[in-house]
Design a protein around this nucleic acid. Structure first.
Lengths: 210, 210
DNA sequence: GTCTATAAGTAGATAGAC
DNA sequence: GTCTATCTACTTATAGAC
């Protein structure tokens, strides 16, 4: 593995586990067993590392978002799809843990992040449209936008909300609970079948978390 | 106005407008027209200032939360009450802009903040219970907790979400939109009257924002 | 209470040898 | 590519005069 890739790999690990703000360029080079000078040979600094990590995240997320076009037509599909999005976010969770600080510090990333969020919003809207057309949900158009915003809120701040509620966390369980939380937002619009779907979801949730 | 109070006042202003992370002890003393040494005479550092500001916020918020006991029985009351909570948060918005960083940096504040959030959650649950008993809403008990969490999410991360979507913001309009957003979460559980309530809310919203 | 001056500590960045 | 050594810049915090 080339040093450049090792730097990215270890940085992502450190940022996710210990928090981005806490790690200095020297910390990263120590973790890698290389000198700070060497680190600066490969990346101009922590900024460049973060930008490179964002490149990777952005590309992966765009692939996921574009993969939804017309392929999510049942509530089960929806469940799985939300799951996939959350897992991708979890892989780069350090971004979402300090969103405010990071976007203030890197205005260029803020622009790109906003564009990504916009595409995410369009995807969620499309998802709700597909579910409507398939007759799975029925929602007043005035409430549809509000629901979309709520789902966006959940998808964006689930990690921060969890950090607020507990000190430690179990990633798999947290993702699971968050999918459930998002699905609960949709249940009221499923009419009579909503309660059945909810029951099935709870079963599914209980089974997976023991 | 005593210097101590002036420091707190100007610090809150700076933190809210420019961001807490960006302001150093020297910046604050410059803004006040006093020396850094003098600042350190009154407060041991930025930490002590932030703690003092949190004291104020915590006390004000607790008064608001305790004021809800049994006094919110209509959907209009609920609207007003959410409004009051959001305005209080807005006054100390710098806390909510960098929650993650702040709570990591000040573990003692994190403990107190979590307790405050817990009381907030109890208040929201109580609100929903009161609305249920008054026959205003009807909600499956399994969905009630999820709804509570969603409202908490909205109340806690509305400021960060807005910062993500725009560069600048109009406080009054943002608060208004957020109240609307929260109310939209409750509408599905209002049955037939929900649509009327929604229409009235939209009217109200349009009127207030022009 | 308030000032000036300065110490002490930390993060970021580069130069030059190997 | 990688290292050691060092330098700059900045923030916090304190000492001592007024």
């Amino acid at each position: 593995m080339k040093t450049r890739d090792r730097i990215l790999h270890v940085s992502l690990l450190l940022f996710n586990e210990e928090g981005e703000a806490q790690q200095t360029a020297v910390d990263i080079s120590n973790a890698l067993g290389i000198s700070p000078g060497n680190l600066y040979y490969h990346f101009k600094g922590k900024d460049a590392i973060i930008r490179a990590l964002f490149d990777a995240f952005e590309e992966e997320m765009r692939v996921i978002l574009r993969g939804s076009r017309g392929s999510v037509t049942s509530i089960e599909d929806n469940w799985v799809y939300i799951y996939i999005i959350l897992e991708e976010i979890y892989d780069f969770r350090f971004f979402y843990r300090n969103l405010g600080v990071l976007l203030k510090r890197y205005p260029d990333l803020a622009v790109r992040f906003r564009a990504l969020v916009a595409e995410q919003r369009m995807t969620i809207l499309g998802l709700l449209d597909d579910l409507s057309k398939a007759g799975v949900i029925s929602i007043d158009p005035r409430l549809r936008d509000a629901l979309t915003e709520q789902i966006m809120l959940a998808l964006t701040f689930w990690l921060e909300a969890d950090a607020l509620n507990r000190q430690e966390h179990d990633g798999a369980d947290l993702i699971h609970r968050t999918v459930f939380q998002v699905m609960c937002l949709i249940v009221p619009y499923m009419g009579e079948t909503g309660f059945d779907a909810l029951s099935r979801m709870i079963d599914h949730y209980e089974r997976a978390t023991g």
